[in-house]
Amino acid sequence: MIDNRYALETPEGIDIMLTPAGIGVRTMAFVVDLLIRGVVLFAASMALQFTGNMGQGLFFILLFCIEWFYPVLFEIYRGATPGKKYFGLVVVYDNGLPITLPGSMLRNLFRSIDILPFAYLSGFVAILCSKQFKRIGDHVAGTMVVYQDTPSKVEHFTVDELPQITLSLTLEEQQTIVAYAERSQSFSEERLQELANQLEPMLECRGEEAVIKLKAMAAGLVGKV
């Protein structure tokens, strides 16, 4: 089963699912960061051009700091650079914990390897070949970039009447039916009926009636009375 999620086993013996971020979204995040850095440097050069040589020196220092420490500072204090934050990404260690200074320094130092021979070609290949979408810096520092999802609300659904239906279903099948009911708000009425019609031979009805019956089944399964 191909999944872009990654099961992380905690010391408590349970899997937490993390979703590593791949090429697409990380390219976008990088571009956003590049833009931010470019704007800052441009603004600095504008502001510093009137201060003569000292300004040039300051600009060099700024260039250096932004080059090497822009990602590091943001990663250790905010969890990710603004570009990554914008796309809901966060940098964590392999065990899912927030990144700290050594890890962040390492992964950003090794940016200079990822960039070889030009325009992050090695990083691209490394990301493709890794199940957790790690570039070389991530491999060395033991980090990865994952999507940060906030805990979602469990969707509730309403049922008006409760016809009694009993069918012997496996757990997975029950899960499908509950998911049907929980996500029913995002589907159109016709589509709901179409889906419910799939079970026509078992429910022995079609259309609206089948939808109601199926939802009732789901309600029964989750224990709604």
Binding site: Q175, A179, R183, L195, Q198
Partner: peptide
């Protein structure tokens, strides 16, 4: 949009 995964699940049940 259409619950394609659910459709597959329901088909499996049937």
């Amino acid at each position: 949009l259409e619950g394609w995964d659910i459709e597959l699940g329901l088909k499996k049940i049937r």
